[in-house]
Design a binder for these strands. Structure first.
Length: 1026
RNA sequence: GGGUGGUUAGCUCAGCUGGUAGAGCGCUUCGUUUACACCGAAGAUGUCGGGGGUUCGAGUCCCUCACCACCCACCA
């Protein structure tokens, strides 16, 4: 069959992939030799509704290279694929589509139906990304494809949650967390991005209580008074005036003498109805920086992380001002009642812990229900109007409200892009400090290696300063938190009418109305499933007084439903006095787990844990994780912590963190900027092999890579080059099909064949060495340079005369060597360019196995090394290069064959000539070689090792050009010679430098001097001509 | 404010444990020699960011400065 001139990637890639799949080539353990070592990789699971972007293409190319390489080496290989349910992202995608389809929205749909709807979305889009990975050539064991919400995986998540819960690693609490007002859920620190934006800082007066005054004195660095005045207020700077309503105190630094006179006094928050304005104390704390702003900070514990810490330290009450959407609250108690409670706390009549923060609402009616940014505007306007802004003179000296324009770091949700609000809410947390130890030690001790090594520092820094991890999300799509709640009927405040210290069931029942229950105390339990939970609650019930101890457990939707159900049940009991009809309602936590909590279990979960599966035994710990450095905290660190916590073992032997793929200008690819290169488009245009090779060649460790289409086209051309080398071999019967499949290097006698075999041995070691060290780019470059510049540029050219010559034995030998060498190129290139190599493998021979399962070579460079042949061929190559260079510069017509002479070549050179005469003559366009006593006048001089050669072409030579050429070469040589001799003349060099370096320098110098003298002689001859 | 990486040919970047600079693309000239014009041959281009130090010798190690990028961080 005649080969086409180019490889049709589009047609072939699909066909070849299907062939591999049909033959189950990717299955775990396929091509494993008996007793082979396991080699396993878990794929970083892409979002199930996502599509392949350049980062995925890069990431999976690297994984596939390692997988294919190890598979060919006969290891027991598993590449575990799968997708992530990606809570927020998938919920977002689904809701967007529902909106486009004009389906009812999530809330109208209800939780159960909505979750079903997301599953539909999942099923619909799952194939997309998987198909895209396949078109890239990823050789995952697709039969094992996992999903983070599969039943088995869910078991792993549940078990982990329950174990953590039972050992106190997971806890629930009302804490200040990052709240995303768009998605209306808590998010973790990592999902918040700080962005610098232009902001304002307002300066307001908080009047001192009772019109009190003090002398405010400001001094410069030398202690001179720069300002002194009587003030009846304290000046506060804030970027968030809307939070003033929730202030609990004003704090100043204990050493700040300016405010010493008023510490402990009260000041008034200058917002809201005048008659009900709250007074808050002026306290001291280390937190305020006296040099910043006025040095006085308002403390709003429920809406700022710093303030929260100050409030905790000083017992300052927390007041929640906003709802989940980021609007000023319009629920709970009236403003007047709330203000009364706040005053009672301030007076010490009530403890701040006793305040029901969810009920107290200190937002005045005028601001209730306003969006937070609208409220800010109104409050600023109101304060300014009232004259409570601090005034500063403008350029003309007229006093103006003091508002600084300044850049501030503002937190945004990484997905929603809205301003994140610190919110005081009930959430679940992982106390990561308890499980972080082994994850740090593993890397410290080298049990797990992180590459590039500099990223270890980042890893350590984060883990050593780890904060609790907020794992609950107020979403519907995800692993629902396996915790059920029931009312603690023992602890609720009953009125003991008889005062005898015992609880009368009837008194209890009267008290247990829905309203009281809703405000009562919960008691929660976690378990693997509802049955186990019921058992737990049975114990709780048994401990209750009669008749409640007869109640049976019933699960209801939520807390409200539970309260009503219980109240109803009790009302019924009042009537029929039948305790067996009493129910004890429980309800499940409404929240789901952070997606990263489940993907944190990816290695264990995909291998079947908590079941003791064979896969787990065989492939865990996994060999290497390849992922982007941007998820080192999100994912890598958490996997380390979680696998250690659950099974006490490292999840990976090595973690290879790669960098980001950027556009050709170095910008991060993003949809909004529109600079995204879609890997699928590129695959379509250039073929998967070209895209893969480009990414591999650019994968220098630890550096971002800039992708350009030119580069991809260049590597597509490389594929064509390989294709045509194979095509040449095929046309000349130099293929495995013709000469037979050879697993070992054929024997060769001709230097040119011995030489290429030696070079093949070298490149095989180079490729293996580079891959072992995860230097993907070096592996790519080594095999690229070998294939193109050794095999194509030289060997194929050398082989032409031999293949077309009369020497049958030499021809046969060359065919055998060429067939083998090209096979080796295919084998060594296959991990990087799987499609074209597999195709050629099939075209060039009939084999026992497909290339994907071919044996990776183990011959060593030393086995194939041939010093004599290598030296001889390097002589031949440099001769040809010299002749070509001289001809080009002398403008000798490219196709013209010219005679050549030499002046007494030494024996080695003569032999080299003789044995390679046909090749040299053809490639250098030499007609003949004759020995002469001296180079004729006007000859072009070609200095070679072991003699001087020349082209006696006086009739076509341009004397001036030749003179210039020689002088240029000579000048370069002289520069080198002077450098080398200066080194050798330095006595310290000989003393301290290693012998071989000194020796090499000497040889170098001698060679340069020899060449220089030849050029000098040539110049002299030219002078005679002139 | 900390941390990390970068600054090498016109462009994009290699250069691992110090021995005196490379690749691809682009550019110039020549070439349809029966594998390949997605090609071949030849060629031009570098104070390796500035300064200092260690060393016989530094793009490579140390210090320092400048600029760029990214990550982390609570300055109201």
């Amino acid at each position: 069959m005649a080969m086409e001139k180019t490889f049709d990637a589009k047609e072939a890639e699909t066909r070849i992939y299907a062939m591999w799949e049909a033959a189950k080539c990717f299955a775990a353990g396929a091509n494993a030799k008996p007793g082979a070592d396991a080699f396993s990789i878990v794929i970083p699971p892409p979002n199930v509704t996502g599509s392949l972007h350049m980062g995925h293409a890069f990431n999976n190319t690297l994984q596939d290279i390692l997988i294919r390489w190890h598979r060919m080496r006969g290891d027991d290989v598993l590449w575990q694929p799968g997708t992530d349910h990606a809570g927020i992202a998938t919920q977002m995608v689904t809701e967007r589509e529902m909106m486009l389809n004009q389906e009812p929205n999530r809330l109208d749909m209800g939780r159960e139906r909505f979750v079903e709807r997301v599953w539909e979305q999942k099923h619909k889009s799952r194939g997309t990304i998987i198909g895209q990975l396949k078109s890239l050539g990823a050789s995952c064991d697709w039969d094992r494809e996992a999903f983070t919400m599969d039943g088995g995986f869910h078991d792993a998540v549940l078990k982990t949650f329950v174990d953590f819960y039972n050992s106190g690693i997971i806890y629930r609490g009302k804490r200040l967390v990052n709240w995303d007002p768009h998605f209306q859920t808590a998010i973790s620190d990592l999902e918040v991005e700080s962005v610098e934006v232009q902001g304002h800082m307002w300066h307001f007066k908080y009047p001192l209580a009772g019109g009190e005054t003090y002398t405010y004195v400001e001094r410069d660095a030398e202690g001179h008074v720069v300002r002194e005045e009587e003030q009846d207020y304290i000046s506060i700077a804030t970027t968030r005036p809307e939070t003033m309503l929730g202030d609990g105190a004003v704090a100043v630094h204990p050493d700040d003498v300016r405010y010493a006179p008023i510490v402990g006094k009260l000041c008034e928050i200058p917002v809201g109805p005048k008659e009900t304005r709250r007074l808050i104390p002026i306290i001291t704390d280390e937190y305020p920086d006296p040099d910043f702003g006025s040095g006085a900070v308002k403390i709003t514990g429920a809406h700022d992380f710093n303030d929260y810490a100050v409030a905790q330290r000083n017992g300052i009450p927390l007041y929640i001002l906003m709802d989940g959407a980021g609007s000023m609250r319009d629920d709970g108690l009236s403003y007047a009642d709330s203000a009364d409670i706040a005053r009672a706390v301030a007076n010490g009549e009530m403890k701040s812990e006793e305040v029901d923060v969810d009920a107290v609402n200190l937002v005045p009616d005028a601001y209730r229900g306003l969006d937070r940014f609208e409220a800010r505007k109104r409050i600023v306007a109101d304060i300014t109007e009232e004259g409570l802004s601090v005034m500063m003179p403008d350029e003309e000296g007229n006093p103006q409200p003091y508002v600084e324009q300044k850049p501030i770091m503002q937190p945004f949700g990484d997905r929603s892009k809205v301003v994140i609000e610190p919110m005081l809410t009930d959430q679940w947390f992982v106390d990561t400090a308890q499980i972080v130890g082994p994850a740090i030690d593993a890397v410290r001790q080298g049990d797990t290696r992180i590459l590039p090594e500099q990223d270890q520092k980042v890893y350590f820094h984060w883990l050593e300063n780890i904060e609790p991890w907020t794992i609950s999300r107020q979403l519907w799509w995800g692993h629902r938190i396996p915790v059920w709640y029931g009312f603690d009927l023992r602890l609720t405040e009953f009125t003991d009418d008889e005062g005898d210290g015992t609880l009368d069931p009837t008194e209890m029942l009267r008290f247990l109305t829905a309203e009281n229950l809703v405000r009562g105390t919960d008691r929660h339990h976690a378990a693997m499933d509802a049955d186990a939970v019921k058992e737990k609650f049975a114990d709780v019930i048994a401990a209750l007084p009669t008749p409640l101890n007869h109640a049976r457990v019933v699960e209801v939707e939520d807390r409200h439903a539970a309260a009503h159900r219980l109240a109803g049940s009790l009302a019924q009991y009042e009537i029929d006095q039948d305790p067996t009809q009493l129910v004890y309602p429980i309800w499940r936590d409404q929240d789901v787990l952070d997606t990263w909590f489940s993907s944190g279990l990816w290695p264990l979960g995909t291998l079947g844990w908590p079941e003791e599966t064979d896969a787990l035994k065989r492939y865990f710990p996994t060999s290497v994780l390849i992922t982007g450095f941007d998820i080192i905290f999100y994912w890598v660190a958490r996997m380390m912590m979680m696998q250690y916590a659950m099974v006490g073992e490292r999840p990976f032997d090595t973690v290879y963190l790669h960098s980001l793929v950027r556009d050709e200008k170095g910008k991060k690819m993003s949809k909004s900027v529109g600079n995204v290169l879609d890997p699928l488009d590129l695959i379509d245009e250039y073929g998967a092999d070209a895209v893969r090779f480009t990414l591999t060649a650019m994968a220098a460790m630890g550096r971002d890579l800039r992708l350009s289409k030119d580069r991809i086209a260049g590597y597509r051309n490389f594929g064509t080059k390989l294709w045509n080398a194979a095509r040449f071999a095929e046309l000349n019967s130099a293929t495995a099909r013709e000469v037979g499949v050879s697993h070992v290097a054929p024997k060769a006698t001709a230097p040119v064949n011995r030489w290429i075999l030696a070079e093949t041995g070298r490149v095989r070691e180079e490729v293996d060495g580079a891959l072992t060290a995860y230097r993907f780019n070096e592996a790519a470059n080594a095999i690229y340079a070998f294939t193109w510049h050794m095999v194509c540029d030289w060997y194929v050219e050398f082989a032409k005369p031999l293949l077309q010559g009369d020497d049958a034995a030499l021809k046969a030998e060359t065919q055998a060597v060429m067939a083998w060498v090209i096979d080796q190129c295919l084998v060594l290139l296959h991990p990087i360019m799987p499609f074209i190599t597999e195709e050629l493998w099939g075209v060039l021979g009939t084999r026992e196995k497909m290339l994907i399962h071919a044996d990776w070579p183990t011959y060593r460079a030393d086995d194939l090394a041939d010093a004599e042949a290598q030296a001889e061929m390097s002589w031949v190559i440099s001769l040809i290069e010299e002749v070509r260079s001289a001809r080009a510069q002398m403008h000798v017509a490219a196709g013209l064959y010219v005679p050549m002479v030499h002046t007494g070549l030494d024996a080695a050179a003569q032999q080299a000539w003789k044995r390679n005469e046909t090749l040299i003559k053809r490639l250098a366009r030499i007609e003949s070689l004759e020995q002469v006593a001296a180079l004729p006048k006007g000859a072009v001089t070609i200095p070679v090792r072991g003699g001087t050669m020349g082209l006696p072409i006086a009739n076509i030579i341009d004397v001036a050009a030749e003179k210039a050429r020689l002088e240029k070469s000579l000048a370069k040589l002289k520069k080198e010679i002077s450098g080398l001799s200066r080194r050798l003349e330095n006595p310290k060099f000989a003393e301290s430098a290693p012998e071989d370096v000194v020796e090499e320098t000497r040889e170098n110098l001698a060679a340069r001097e020899g060449e220089a003298s030849k050029l000098g002689a040539a110049l002299a001859r030219l002078a005679e001509v002139g």
